[in-house]
């Protein structure tokens, strides 16, 4: 919970933005945000940006064959490197 009764804490702001607060609490937080200091407003802005970003790019799982193919591709690349540079593994 917030230590400053006039300033909602990070979790409260997140709950508010996600619509997880009951109506009364949400109204109180909205009023606090309307009068909030710069630090609170920056937190709200960051959370909004994060939630927007997450909504716009959900992470889909590729087919398992992708990982297998890439594993094989790396093995081929690795062999090629070994042929070019010998067995030195400290090429980095």
């Amino acid at each position: 919970m917030s230590t400053d009764p006039g300033r909602p804490d990070f979790r409260t702001l997140l709950d508010w933005l996600e619509g997880r607060l009951d109506a009364d609490k949400a109204e109180r937080v909205a009023a606090q945000v309307a009068e909030a200091d710069e630090q609170t407003l920056r937190t709200v802005e960051w959370l909004r940006d994060f939630l927007t970003t997450a909504r716009e790019l959900p992470l889909e799982e590729p087919p398992a064959t992708v990982r297998e193919s890439l594993k094989e591709a790396f093995a081929r690349w690795s062999q090629g490197q070994a042929l070019m540079f010998g067995n030195r593994r400290d090429v980095a």
Binding site: L57, P58, L59, E60, E61, P62, V66, R67, L70, K71, F74, A75, S78, Q81, A82, R89, D90, V91, A92
Partner: peptide
Amino acid sequence: ARDPEAWELLVERYERLVFS
């Protein structure tokens, strides 16, 4: 340095992002 486990971890880390 041709560490296959590093490659697997890199792929695991970002394959969903690239696919998405």
